[in-house]
C-alpha cells in the first residue's frame, strides 16, 4: 500500500473516540476527522475526504439509531466512501437496512472487535476495497435462524432428503434404505411439514425441500 487510508471517526464517547484515534494510528491509518455526532457529516466528508467513515450506531441527539441512518445517507451522497459501523450491539435489522442500501464498502462490527488490531485493520481495508464485513456473531445469528428447519429433521429424514436431492424417486429411496414405499412416503410428508411447505404446493414441494437442503 503506497498511501495510508484516510479515516473519519464519528463517536460520541470521548473515551472511545480518543482510543480509536490511537488505535487507527497504530494500525497505520490516517485519521482525518474525529467528530462526536453525525449532524455535519456531509460537510466533514467533503472537507476531509476520507476513504472510510467509522461510525457509532447510537449518536446524539436521540442516541437511538442515528449512526445507521447516517451510514445510509453517506451511501447515497458519497458512494465512493466506505462505511464501517461499530456498535455495542449487533442488530440484524440494521444490517439488513445497510445491505439494502448497497453492499459495496459496508461493514458492521461489534465494538469489542477493535481490541484485535488485526481484525480492525482488515475490516477497514476490506470495506475501503469495496468489500462487505459483517460481525461473526451477526452472521451466526442470521444463519441459525435460517438453517434450523433442517436441523430438526431426524437422521432418517435427512437421509431421505439427501436421496431426494440426488434425484431419486420414493420407490428408489425405499429400495436403497430397505424400507417400504409407505415408510418413505411418511418420511417425505414429515420433511415437508418440518420445512413448512404447504399442502397446496404439493407438486413443487419436493423441489422446494431439495432447494432448502442445498441452501439455495
Amino acid at each position: 500500500m503506497t498511501e495510508s487510508l484516510r479515516v473519519a471517526i464519528v463517536e460520541d464517547s470521548t473515551l472511545l473516540r480518543e482510543g480509536l484515534v490511537r488505535l487507527l494510528a497504530e494500525a497505520g491509518f490516517e485519521t482525518v476527522a474525529a467528530r462526536p455526532d453525525a449532524t455535519d457529516l456531509d460537510e466533514t466528508i467533503t472537507a476531509a475526504q476520507p476513504d472510510v467513515v467509522v461510525l457509532d450506531v447510537r449518536l446524539p441527539p436521540t442516541h437511538r439509531d442515528e449512526g445507521v441512518r447516517a451510514a445510509i445517507r453517506v451511501r447515497a451522497t458519497h458512494p465512493q466512501v466506505a462505511v464501517l459501523l461499530l456498535s455495542q450491539y449487533v442488530e440484524t435489522t440494521y444490517a439488513r437496512e445497510l445491505l439494502a442500501a448497497g453492499s459495496r464498502g459496508i461493514g458492521y462490527l461489534l465494538k469489542d472487535r477493535v481490541t484485535d488490531l488485526e481484525q480492525l485493520r482488515r475490516a477497514i481495508e476490506d470495506v475501503a476495497a469495496g468489500g462487505t464485513v459483517l460481525d461473526p456473531q451477526m452472521v451466526e445469528e442470521m444463519l441459525r435462524a435460517r438453517a434450523d428447519p433442517l436441523a430438526r429433521l431426524t437422521p432418517r429424514e435427512t437421509q431421505v432428503l439427501r436421496a431426494m436431492a440426488e434425484g431419486r424417486s420414493n420407490a428408489a429411496i425405499a429400495r436403497e434404505l430397505v424400507v417400504s414405499p409407505g415408510a418413505v412416503e411418511k418420511h417425505v410428508t414429515s420433511i415437508f411439514g418440518k420445512l413448512g411447505l404447504e399442502e397446496s404446493a404439493a407438486a413443487h414441494r419436493r423441489v422446494l425441500a431439495v432447494l432448502q437442503f442445498l441452501g439455495a
Binding site: L15, Q88, D112, T115, L117
Partner: peptide, 23 residues
C-alpha cells in the same frame, strides 16, 4: 442508557488499552 454510556464504554476502552499493552 447509563450502563451503555458509562461502564460499557470504560470497559471497551480498558480492553483497547490492555490489548495495546499486550502488543
Amino acid at each position: 442508557r447509563d450502563i451503555h454510556d458509562g461502564p460499557q464504554q470504560r470497559l471497551l476502552r480498558l480492553q483497547m488499552e490492555l490489548a495495546a499493552a499486550e502488543r
